[in-house]
Design a protein around this nucleic acid. Structure first.
Lengths: 111, 111
DNA sequence: TTGGTTAATCGTATATTTGCGATATAAAAT
DNA sequence: ATTTTATATCGCAAATATACGATTAACCAA
């Protein structure tokens, strides 16, 4: 008996969950906030702003990148990150499709 | 040195992260999908649909309820759940505020 | 009251996440 | 060439999350 059975769910369900998981930590929300506000891409400035060690921030950045929420390019000895708005749009669309549309017809809840 | 330092982040950041965490599992996405589709509230029907044991589903329901995403009422020996649309609206609004608005001014990314 | 049904909770095993220091890597500056 | 700067990665410890079976609780039906 397997312990984690995420595979048992649909592709879409897993995708949405993955997306949500990437957002499921205040540090990553904070990173995205910084990236969204700074018009130019940020690198180690993030480390200065966050109350975390450099290695920890690097790890969070990696997770965000793996989830596709941000892009990163190496710029000399520095790394430059920015938000992948397309990914956010996709997430938003799927999310809306799942819930917002249904909301209209179901407004009168039962409980 | 504390290991989890979520407290070091802002209230809003923590709230958004909590919200996202509640969605960060395909089983919970699936549960919400079921609740959104069934106009009347569901109880153990969810268990039949999901590939998980009853106790596990119950645990996921509890997490969703704790996060405020669903409401639940006891109806005799059964439990009735439904989506808390207001909570979703709030999440959507905060999420949009953080990212979507900023997107407009930042469309031309750098990386 | 007894028995059956439904769902929550407890206990437990395992997996994953979080965080940090230390180290490695790679380019820039001296 | 050596040193400094900026980041990524490794290895580890601690905290959380996931999943299940067993048990409990609460209600309904005979």
């Amino acid at each position: 008996m397997a312990i984690h059975k995420k595979e048992a769910f649909s592709q879409k369900e897993q995708e949405l969950a993955e997306f949500a998981k990437a957002l499921a930590h205040p540090a990553r929300i904070a990173i995205l906030k910084v990236l969204a506000h700074k018009n130019e891409c940020i690198c180690g400035e993030i480390v200065e702003v966050l109350p975390l060690a450099q290695s920890t921030v690097s790890q969070h950045l990696k997770e965000l990148k793996n989830a596709g929420l941000i892009d990163g390019t190496v710029d000399g000895p520095k790394s430059c990150y920015c938000i992948n708005w397309k990914a956010f749009e996709k997430f938003n669309a799927e999310f809306s499709f799942l819930f917002n549309k249904l909301k209209v017809q179901n407004e009168k809840a039962c409980c």
